[in-house]
């Protein structure tokens, strides 16, 4: 009896899980199928559930309208440079806020936290004017530089670095390590999960970012993937096949990035929540 009951709960749970899988994978599957169909056929009733033979044509059309290689390069270059530089800067800032004593420390930290509450739309126009006066419109640096020091990442880094025992740092000092050496050889290695979590956050936010690149970039050769995909949505003409293929292509790198760093990502987030 008991085992039967267990079995039936198990079946129930699995049914729910299968349903969840279908619900979460369904849209992705539809996107994949859509990228292999010509635009008109995507709307057929009943919907086509098997891949069509239009993939190459969609790719050709997409490449013609966007120049997909350059767009990919733009997105990857910007996201990687941004992720590395931003993670590094935020780690340094977080370390300073966690472990150093200096005048106005709490005040500055409060300012940083406070800036989390300012919506981006408020700073959009002044920032844009700044970019124009630097003559930075349509450049990589206009996208990479303004958001390098991310308040959220600094906050996350600080919380995690506080958990690093002072005694490690003191021991290193006693052993004669300089401050930089301590930071690079002691602090960074022990906070690796947090670094990975921050890196994923920064990478995802930059990879998916639409508004700011849209405002600052003007020519097709400089577009990032989201801006380029958005430009595919025409006034009265939308080639849905192209759009689906473009979306599929743009999700692949982020999936890979996430799968590679997934373990660190989860432990990094949990690491911030519990302190011993």
């Amino acid at each position: 009896m008991i085992t039967q009951k267990k079995l039936s709960t198990k079946i129930g749970i699995y049914c729910l899980l299968v349903l969840g899988v279908i619900l979460s994978i369904g849209p992705f599957y539809w996107m994949l199928i859509g990228s292999t169909l010509p635009s008109g056929e995507i709307f057929h009733l009943p919907p086509k559930l098997l891949p069509g033979d239009y993939l190459a044509k969609n790719f050709q059309a997409l490449n013609e309208s966007l120049g997909i290689a350059k767009i990919f390069w733009n997105s990857i270059f910007i996201a990687i440079v941004y992720t590395i530089a931003s993670t590094f800067i935020c780690a340094m800032a977080g370390y300073a806020f966690a472990k150093f004593r200096f005048k106005g420390k709490n005040f500055f930290f409060f300012i940083i936290l406070f800036s989390l509450m300012i919506p981006f739309q408020v700073t959009l126009i002044p920032l844009f004017e700044l970019m124009v006066s630097f003559n930075w419109l349509n450049t990589y640096q206009a996208i990479i530089l303004p958001s390098l020091a991310s308040p959220f990442a600094i906050y996350l880094m600080r919380q995690n670095m506080q958990a690093v025992p002072d005694s490690i740092i003191e021991a290193s000092r006693v052993d004669g390590a300089g401050e930089l050496k301590i930071f690079f050889s002691v602090i960074l290695p022990v906070t690796r999960p947090t670094l990975a979590a921050v890196a994923i956050f920064q990478f995802m936010s930059q990879w998916n970012s639409l508004l700011w690149p849209l405002i600052t970039l003007n020519s097709k050769e400089m577009f990032t993937l989201p801006v380029a995909l958005s430009s595919l949505i025409g006034m009265a003409r939308i080639d849905y096949g192209q759009l689906m293929l473009g979306t599929t292509l743009s999700t692949i790198p982020i999936m890979i990035f996430f799968l590679v760093l997934q373990k660190q990502f989860i432990s990094g987030i949990l690491g911030g929540s519990v302190k011993e």
């Binding site: 844009f128 004017e129 124009v132 508004l211 405002i215 020519s219 430009s231 949505i233």
Partner: peptide, 25 residues
């Protein structure tokens, strides 16, 4: 002549920001 091509609602976003920034860009 350089023609630059955006999605129309993106174009309006860019235009509004530019006009609000006193015509920059």
């Amino acid at each position: 002549v350089k023609v630059e091509d955006f999605n129309s609602s993106d174009l309006y976003d860019k235009l509004t920001v530019g006009l609000a920034a006193r015509g920059s860009g």
